[in-house]
Design a protein around this nucleic acid. Structure first.
Length: 580
RNA sequence: GCGCCCGUAGCUCAACUGGAUAGAGCACCGGCCUUCUAAGCCGGGGGUUGGAGGUUCGAGUCCUCCCGGGCGCACCA
């Protein structure tokens, strides 16, 4: 179903074009900034009036006259206000009939795009040499939410988990594995249970023992030249590491599967081809025996030129080369319209460069939009990157376990009468949801402070608050008096009912914005406001105690609220509970 | 040195991408439970949006310059 905002944008925009005789002009309709301004407001009149050198209020009056003649059923009234805004109030029975369509067809709450695209989303992408740590959390969670939102909007989504499974540190790990295997008492699976520990042990061996370091380097060469034994160990290592990732994804309720893997090693045999293309386009310069590209748009003011290294002086390749090969694949083979990289903001220069090279060399098609969906760093409450007290990187699995533990204590404190097993289930969902929501609800581009107390709070814009709101709604619907209500909204007399209903109808509008700009916090804000409006409705309007007609209508509204909350949270990757 | 990002209430964050009187939560103060989950709701105080200019009907948002912070800049990813 076309959203209200789209209809208004089209109708008011059209009227504006007709009245002003300007072809390209936008109505710029947004939801009203204050309730007394109505439901929506058109902000675009002033800009057009400016171009016409006309009084904005006069132009607004002409637009309103035009619109009133068209008699759009959705609109109750227009009002010109301030310097030239058009405030729009919607018609109640139209709102009700829209809502009733959603009640009977909940899948329509989020409308499908008219222009489906093929969109590659590269996210999570852990380094398989180590265990997943807190640094992988944001990208994994934000990426997964975007994927859900884009998919639900009707796009063709190709997930790509670009795991780091190649490169120098694997030589070190393999050498260390071999060393361990030689000694009798060790068994491999147990050693690999703690990847982080294993990596650190290998690393300290590498740093302290020259012979071992040399052995590691030889090991890389053996691996890359296809040595059977090395490759067998490598594959074993990768498998073990991937199963760690799977466990994390499962715990986090993240949709990434094995078939979404797009490991770096996949591109090994295409790297020389990438270099050949770049050479053919005369982009390569030899500098200090390395093959690099100097891009004119990356020249600093002082003439300092930033190079992109494509091939090292020893012939080895770097991640820029791999990324170019991946762009080639996503562009030519997957035929993507958009390719999103949900990656740490600190890599923005790298992506600027790689995207520029890809475009300049024709490795990326003309149509593909390459977008770095950057996110900020997770900080501790001291404002520095999040670490343990001893200064170590926090393993993701430990962080999640702590979240669940804290949630269990909280649930027990709030509701000690609940069965222990049930509390465990609730704690698991609430704990994970809290961590995810804390991440999603903040503007992704800025660094954010990780704080247990705020994310596990039941107050404010948090997962527990939203989940509680949902559970509360569901409990109403489970009452005996709530059974067999006729599933239609018929009354919208109370202001709280109306505000709630209009909000529900806006889910799709928010989803459209997020699908475009990739800021999931906008969906979080929406859901928080939705839950707040429900609470206000709940306080102000008796549901079960009202006379039958009102009761039925309100129950339908309650049911639609539940549906909207549930779907919205699902698009964030957050599961709801019937009872808390 | 050069480049990118950021600076909003005591704290954590919003502000629909240039719109009307900058909003929430925490903390603080005061109300509301024999009544659908009080894990809730209502009200109050708290701001020169780091500073100074500029652009325009209109700036937290755009431009310039300062101040303060974070992060990147040649063979790691």
């Amino acid at each position: 179903m076309t959203t209200i905002k789209s209809i208004l944008n089209e109708q008011v925009g059209n009227a504006l074009c007709r009245v002003s005789s300007i072809e390209q002009c936008k109505a710029n309709v947004i939801t009203a900034s204050r309730p007394e301004f109505g439901d929506y407001q058109a902000n675009g009149i002033m800009k057009v009036a400016k171009r016409l050198k006309q009084s904005p209020r006069e132009l607004a009056a002409a637009v309103v006259t035009f619109l009133e003649k068209k008699n759009i059923s959705l609109v109750e009234s227009y009002e010109i206000a301030g310097p030239g805004f058009i405030n729009i109030r919607l018609n109640n029975s139209e709102l009700i009939s829209r809502a009733n369509v959603f009640l009977n067809n909940p899948e329509l709450l989020v409308s499908k795009t008219s222009y489906p695209k093929t969109i590659v989303v590269d996210y999570s992408s852990p380094n398989l040499a180590k265990e997943m740590h807190v640094g992988h959390l944001r990208g994994t969670i934000i990426g997964d939410s975007l994927v859900r939102i884009l998919e639900r909007s009707g796009h063709n989504i190709i997930r790509q988990n670009h795991v780091g499974d190649w490169g120098t540190q694997f030589g070190m790990l393999i050498a260390y594995l071999q060393e361990i295997q030689k000694s009798k008492e060790n068994n491999l699976p147990r050693q690999l249970l703690d990847l982080e520990h294993f990596y650190r042990a290998a690393k300290s061996r590498f740093d302290s023992d020259k012979n071992f370091a040399d052995e590691s380097r030889r090991s890389v060469v053996k691996l890359q030249s296809g040595d059977t034994e090395s490759n067998k160990l490598w594959a074993q290592f990768i498998e073990e590491s991937l199963s760690h990732c799977d466990a994390i994804y499962d715990k986090l309720n993240v949709t990434l599967k094995r078939e979404d893997l797009d490991a770096e090693s996949r591109y090994n045999n295409q790297l020389s081809e990438v270099v050949r293309i770049l050479e053919q386009k005369n982009l390569i310069t030899i500098s200090d025996e390395a093959k690099v590209i100097f891009l004119p748009n990356f020249v600093g003011k002082d003439g300092n030129i930033l190079p992109v290294i494509i091939q090292k002086s020893d012939g080895g390749y770097l991640y820029s080369t791999t990324d170019l090969a991946a762009i080639k694949f996503r562009s030519a083979e997957l035929k993507a319209d958009r390719s999103l990289y949900v990656v740490d903001a600190r890599q923005s220069l790298h992506f600027d460069q790689v995207f520029s090279v890809a475009k300049a060399a024709g490795i990326a098609s003309k149509k593909i939009s390459l977008e770095h969906i950057a996110y900020g760093t997770m900080m501790g409450n001291d404002g520095k990157p999040f670490k343990t007290r001893s200064g170590d990187i926090v393993k993701l699995t430990e962080l999640l376990d702590e979240a669940i533990k804290r949630a269990y204590e909280l649930v027990t404190a709030k509701n000690p009468a609940l069965d222990k097993e049930l509390r465990k289930v609730i704690a698991e969902k609430v704990g994970i949801a809290s961590v995810k929501y804390a991440d999603l609800s903040k503007n992704r581009t800025s660094d954010y402070i990780f704080e247990w107390s705020t994310m596990l709070s039941f107050e404010g814009n948090t997962a527990p608050y939203l989940m509680y709101a949902y559970a509360r709604i569901k409990s109403i619907l489970k009452k005996p008096e709530a059974q067999n209500f006729t599933a239609n909204i018929s009354s919208l007399n109370e202001i709280e009912e109306r505000l709630l209903l209009v909000k529900i109808l806006q889910l799709s509008e928010v989803i459209q914005i997020v699908a475009e700009d990739c800021y999931p916090n906008q969906l979080c804000n929406y859901l928080y406001e939705l839950a707040g409006l429900f609470m206000k409705f709940y306080e102000a309007c008796p549901i079960l105690k009202s006379e039958e007609r009102i009761r039925n209508s309100r129950l339908a509204l309650v049911s639609l609220t539940a549906e909207t909350l549930n779907q919205g949270l699902d698009l964030l990757g957050i599961e709801t509970l019937e009872q808390m």
